[in-house]
């Protein structure tokens, strides 16, 4: 009589242990196949000679990568993507933080402006790109506005000039994503306990010092998250470039994501496309892996 309940409880114990495993298995399997197997496959294709619509798995070693890094277009891509990411991160995080600090002053209308800044996030990059392409048209949009305001020194070639095109792209991307940064920072600022600020003020710290020594250190995880989230968006950027410039003029706004698409689907250089994808993956990994390591180390402390 004592055996049965015990057996049942042993079974239910085992079930307790098994259930989470069973629940998670399908998604683990699917992710393993559709993410990691395909990453592996892409890496493998990048080591072959595949050119044309029929797979050709003739081994080519690292020759695709050698060719790739000798290409003027790809060299431009790497330089563009690094400059774009750097500027975009600084601008978005800077503007986002400034807006969050202003909105945190508990003035009237905070909610209204909070939403105004956040709304661009709801738009896709394709729409943003189309609108900013109009605004950047040298004979219309911004230049017309600056002309009417007698601010002619602000007029620029924007997208048609190889020297300014990349910065124009940064402006459009920043317009869209700085509101997102603002929302993150605002949440962070509101979680900073008021007594900490008060304590600093009582100790005679100026408002600037309060931000420098009390608030910013507490916001570090948020800054890091913003860098990770915006950074991987920026490295993989495709839609905005596709709509606004298609990589031009010249190679001045070309990005690895766009070239990957063109090499693969327009030129049928599948191996080259796979090599670009692999380089892109490595670039994103350089950004994300330190974050993951940091995250794993922090976790037990919480």
């Amino acid at each position: 009589m004592r055996e049965r309940p015990l057996g049942r409880s042993r079974f239910s114990q085992r079930l307790d242990r098994l259930t989470p495993l069973l629940m998670i298995t399908p998604s683990v399997i699917l992710i393993a196949i559709f993410v990691y197997v395909f990453i592996g496959y892409t890496g493998y294709v990048s080591l072959t000679k595949w050119y044309g619509v029929v797979p050709d798995y003739t081994w080519a070693g690292l020759s695709q990568y050698e060719q790739l890094f000798q290409l003027e277009r790809f060299q431009a891509d790497i330089s563009n993507t690094i400059r774009f990411t750097f500027l975009f991160l600084i601008a978005s995080i800077g503007i986002g933080f400034a807006a969050a600090v202003l909105l945190d002053q508990k003035l009237r209308g905070t909610i209204f402006f909070q939403n105004v800044f956040l709304f661009p996030l709801a738009i896709s990059f394709v729409v943003t790109g189309t609108i900013w392409r109009w605004l950047f048209n040298p004979n219309q949009g911004l230049n017309l506005l600056f002309g009417a305001l007698h601010l002619d020194f602000l007029k620029s070639g924007w997208l048609i000039d190889t020297r300014t095109a990349l910065y124009s792209l940064v402006i459009a991307a920043t317009w869209q994503m700085s509101g997102f940064c603002m929302a993150m920072f605002l949440a962070g600022l509101r979680s900073v306990p008021d007594d900490l600020r008060e304590a600093a003020r009582v100790d005679g710290a100026t408002e600037f010092r309060v931000y420098q020594f009390v608030i910013l250190p507490l916001l570090r995880p948020i800054i890091l998250s913003a860098i990770i989230i915006l950074g991987h968006i920026s490295l993989k950027i495709f839609d905005l470039v596709f709509v606004m410039t298609f990589g031009g003029p010249g190679y001045s706004t070309d990005m690895p994501g766009l070239y990957m698409f063109i090499a693969t689907f327009r030129q049928n250089l599948y191996a080259r496309g796979a090599a670009i994808a692999t380089v892109l993956l490595l670039m994103v990994a350089v950004l994300i892996v330190p974050y993951l390591i940091w995250n794993l180390r922090e976790e037990p402390e919480r």
Binding site: E72, T162, Y251, Q267
Partner: peptide, 19 residues
Amino acid sequence: TPEAFATGLNDEMGQFVQK
């Protein structure tokens, strides 16, 4: 010409009009 050349030609022309 094959697409690989035609697209490469396009790229080169984009460079040419600038440089």
